[in-house]
Design a protein around this nucleic acid. Structure first.
Lengths: 206, 206
DNA sequence: GTCTATAGACGGATAGAC
DNA sequence: GTCTATCCGTCTATAGAC
């Protein structure tokens, strides 16, 4: 693995563990196993290294949200995504950046964070709109709003898990959300005749 | 105002703006308008000053949650509390602490954060349990879980607001939550025959 | 009680040898 | 391309004058 790759991977892990401001170039070089000063051969400085490292993190997080477009009824997919295992006490690699004033003041970094949430919200919006169209969720639901609500529950779950030092409060928050979704859920209208054909139902609808 | 008070107030505001690790004793003394070194006359160090300053912050945040025990039907109170104005882009004074590794590693500080969320969750639990008992929320709702869900929506709302640099995504998240609560809400049963404390407008529906 | 001066370590970055 | 040596600023904390 090249020094450059070692540096970006080390920076990505340190951004997760400590954040941007609290990560020094020296920390990164030590973890990457390269000598002092090597950052400045490959990058203009800490900022550029962080941008490259965080870009990969964002891509991965957004990619995971593509599971919202998978098989099953819309609400099934929503609940499955909510239930995915997340290491709450480690915090969210994307969301944690918003608490770092140096990130918020860095237009390039904060726009990457905002863009990541927007991209994930788009996936949520699509599946929620589908659920409303199918009658599986009530017509009063505004997809753009519920999308932010669901992202917020996950982000807030990380906050609670870190406060407690335990996965529990995050899991409780997710379960509470799923209970509400189940309580408003209706059987989807048969949008098409062969509606018990699981692997195709969301693609062949009206 | 005493130097000690000036120092705790300055520390509280800097904890909010920058967090614990990023706030130096020098920053605090400058903002407090006291001379270099004065912290160490009144406090053992940065940690003790932060504990005293943050204690007041926690008390205030928990006190605000007492509004959940006010007048109106349980769900009305829940929605009113959710709708309270919050400056999303400034972040949560309590929740932001969880993203600071120095706070998480400081058992005294992180236990204050966890204790604050627990106290607020207790207020949520009480009003949610009341709503379930009245039949205003479905029996499938687990108060301890929905309490964490609602706290998480607010905490996550702060994260989204800071990512965007705008109040909007936080308000959207809150509205999405309220829409769900309205969708599962039922008119409360006339709950109890002889239990007529304070105003009873929420018992006379149905 | 409040301040100035300063200690000793670490921050981000650079110069230049190899 | 990679490393050593080093600059200058800031960090938390302390000593001690006033």
């Amino acid at each position: 693995m090249s020094s450059r790759e070692r540096l970006t991977e080390a920076m990505a892990s340190l951004l997760w563990e400590r954040g941007y401001a609290a990560t020094s170039p020296k920390d990164v070089m030590t973890r990457a196993g390269v000598g002092q000063g090597s950052i400045y051969h490959h990058f203009a400085g800490k900022h550029e290294l962080a941008v490259e490292a965080f870009s990969a993190v964002v891509d991965e997080a957004v990619g995971k949200a593509d599971a919202l477009a998978g098989d099953g009824s819309p609400v099934d997919r929503m609940e499955r995504y909510l239930s995915k295992p997340r290491e709450g006490t480690r915090g969210c690699r994307v969301g944690r950046m918003t608490q770092d004033p140096q990130v918020v003041a860095d237009s390039e970094l904060i726009e990457m964070v905002d863009g990541a949430f927007d991209a994930i919200a788009d996936r949520w919006c699509a599946v929620i709109a589908e659920a409303v169209a199918d009658g599986e969720l009530p017509a009063s639901v505004v997809p753009e709003e519920l999308a932010r609500t669901l992202i917020a529950v996950i982000q807030g779950g990380y906050v609670l898990a870190r406060a407690r030092g335990s996965q529990e409060p995050m899991d409780a928050a997710i379960r509470g959300m799923i209970t509400l979704l189940e309580a408003v859920r209706e059987p989807p209208r048969a949008a098409e005749p062969a509606h018990d054909h699981q692997s195709h139902q969301h693609k062949e609808r009206s």
